[in-house]
């Protein structure tokens, strides 16, 4: 594998890469970070004088990932994905990527999707596969389903501070589990349920 290369973008610029990919155009313009060092060191960002107003403008190249794995709260077997809460860049990614895999907390019938069509932000034609995978965001949270697992987070952050600790963590929690359900078994379902209970005091997906 080639060594990791670090390239700096702002969050809006990374989002615009997916937007441009979804638009099927080579770039999107923006006004973020003009005059800063980000466009100076990141040669993929072009600074131009825009042909309409003759002012500085920044161009962000499109990005079309091979595969996007997108976590949704609810999907049907056809691949309609419904998201509650913030959408991040999810539905742009679903359109920019060549292949899309939905990881869903709940697999429902299409009739259930028809009840709230406004929540379907990823229509079936974007999707190539659907995997029913509860608690797939752990140790982060999922809106309306379960809260972030800070206990696990902090302990793994402490463990991952050294290279040895990080490798040990990978061996134990990633390579040591055959699949996601073994990971959940190892963690303990009662803890996952506790996280769900805590989130339901904040937000809940209507039944």
């Amino acid at each position: 594998m080639p060594p990791l290369k670090i390239v700096d973008w702002t969050n809006f610029q990374v989002a615009l890469r997916f937007v441009a990919g979804a638009f099927n155009v080579p770039f999107m313009p923006c006004r973020s970070s003009i005059g800063s060092d980000i466009p100076k060191y990141n040669k993929e960002i072009k600074e131009i004088t825009d042909p309409y107003e003759n002012k500085p403008l920044i161009l962000i190249p499109a990005y079309k990932p091979d595969v996007a794995f997108i976590s949704v709260q609810r999907a049907d077997w056809r691949g309609n994905g419904q998201i509650w809460g913030f959408k991040g860049t999810d539905y742009w990614k679903a359109r920019a990527a060549k292949y899309v895999v939905l990881l869903t907390e709940e697999l429902v019938s299409t009739e259930k999707i028809y009840e709230n069509p406004g929540l379907t932000v990823i229509p079936a034609y974007c999707t190539d596969a659907v995997v029913h995978l509860p608690f797939n965001c752990h140790p982060t949270g999922c809106f309306g389903c379960y809260t972030v697992d800070s206990m696990n987070f902090i302990s793994l952050l402490l463990q991952r501070q050294s290279r040895d600790g990080a490798l040990q963590w990978l061996d134990e929690w990633v390579f040591g589990c055959k699949n996601h359900f073994e990971y959940c078994d190892k963690l303990g379902w009662e803890k996952l349920d506790r996280l769900a209970k805590s989130e339901h005091k904040l937000n809940r997906i209507p039944g």
């Binding site: 913030f86 959408k87 860049t89 949270g141 972030v148 989130e199 904040l202």
Partner: peptide, 21 residues
């Protein structure tokens, strides 16, 4: 985190990241 579920509680709008920017 900017995606913390606590920010979704009683919010008047749930949007996506590009729209905010």
């Amino acid at each position: 985190s900017p995606a913390d579920n606590a920010a979704g509680k009683m919010a008047m709008c749930h949007q996506s990241l590009p729209e905010v920017f």
